[in-house]
């Protein structure tokens, strides 16, 4: 087995341990949150008996330890419990909503990486020229505009004024024929049914939320790329490359290679951030993702929803970091593992 494969395996074997820690954290988080779930469900004026009945139904009359073990037990079976208010399974809800969120998050990051790297490279390469100086204004400008504001401006301009994009009311047109339901997620179902029409409709609806999120995130990549390209261009390595007569595009490529690790790290970090922070854009575009749903759960005090959200997004983030570590190790020959 190659050293890299062994390293990857070691990191993967650690995953269950980390998931266990996340699950425990999510459980403790909910128990220390203020408020009584029974009161939440039964209402402020419920009788003592009614409250006791709700508690018994939820298992809240058991000891904390018992609650914890039964929570872990159902977690092992993929059961995240049911929403206090809708009664729907949290696992099903997440399976339905997560792919929709990914339709925004993944392309946004892709747009952000490409756009940010382009802006950052220009800024670093021409840092003493007007072009370079204007990129730093651009970066600060983008960073100063929150994505939801950009989204509202784009909606007003491109949807209501110019009528280029569909109205921000979810992923589909009212007239879209839904694919046969298999997993509950429209995106996955359409994919399984190879229904390109539906996927096309989703894509048309996704452009604006992806653009407004991607442009905002691009500022982070632009900043880190600009810094590392600027630094790299003054190193002996670049001097030697130029001294050997390498064309400038190669010189820039050499400079960009040094920023690869920090770009990858930002992708993983921002991916994690977006899982939690996609809520605002989802609300603006009425997008049926996990962000808006989780936010709703938090505001209502819907504990299983909060718990499920923390566990699932935590798991995804942990996996993303493992992928990041393995990728970084694979791409940089200096890292030994």
């Amino acid at each position: 087995m190659s050293p890299l494969a062994r390293y990857a395996l070691k990191r993967i074997l650690l995953l269950p341990v980390m998931l266990f820690l996340v699950a425990t954290f999510a459980f403790l988080l909910v128990t220390v949150l203020p408020g009584d779930p029974a009161t939440l469900i039964a209402g402020d004026f419920a009788s003592k008996d009614a409250l006791a009945k709700v508690r018994a139904d939820l298992g809240l009359d058991q000891s904390l330890w018992h609650q914890y073990t039964s929570y872990l037990g159902s977690l092992l079976h993929g059961d995240l419990g049911e929403s206090f208010f809708t009664g729907s399974s949290v696992t099903d809800e997440m399976a339905r909503r997560l792919p929709s969120s990914m339709v925004i998050i993944v392309p946004s990051l892709l747009v952000a990486v490409l756009l940010g790297t382009a802006i950052g490279t220009l800024g670093g390469y021409y840092r003493r020229k007007p072009v370079g100086r204007s990129t730093s204004v651009l970066i600060s400008g983008i960073q100063g505009v929150p994505p939801f504001f950009l989204a509202i401006v784009l909606i007003d301009l491109l949807v209501f004024e110019l009528r280029i994009f569909p109205t921000p009311t979810g992923m589909l047109y009212a007239s879209t024929q839904r694919p046969p339901e298999r997993t509950g997620s429209v995106v996955v179902d359409a994919f399984l049914a190879q229904d390109w029409g539906v996927l096309g409709d989703v894509a048309a609806h996704a452009i604006l939320p992806v653009a407004s999120t991607g442009i905002f995130l691009a500022s982070y990549f632009a900043k880190t790329v600009r810094t590392s390209v600027t630094q790299a261009l003054s190193t002996p390595q670049i001097e030697f490359a130029r001294g050997c007569g390498l064309p400038e595009r190669q010189v820039v490529r050499y400079a960009l290679l040094t920023s690869r690790t920090s770009v990858l790290t930002y992708i993983a970090i921002l991916f994690g951030v977006m899982l939690g922070a996609s809520a605002i854009v989802e609300v603006v575009f009425s997008w049926p993702g996990i962000g808006g749903w989780a936010l709703d759960g938090v505001l209502k005090g819907d504990l299983p929803v909060i718990q499920g959200f923390v566990v699932v997004t935590g798991l995804i983030v942990i996996v993303a970091y493992v992928v990041l570590d393995v990728l970084v190790a694979a791409l940089d020959p200096r890292i030994s593992y």
């Binding site: 002996p236 390595q237 001097e239 050997c244 007569g245 050499y254 290679l257 200096r334």
Partner: peptide, 27 residues
């Protein structure tokens, strides 16, 4: 820079102080 690079490396060679600084660490 474009015309200069035709000369550099071909007719004029350049060696700097630190060999580790000069070589690309990733390629």
């Amino acid at each position: 820079r474009r015309s200069l690079r035709q000369v550099l490396g071909k007719d004029i060679g350049f060696i700097s102080q630190s060999p580790f600084g000069a070589l690309n660490p990733i390629l």
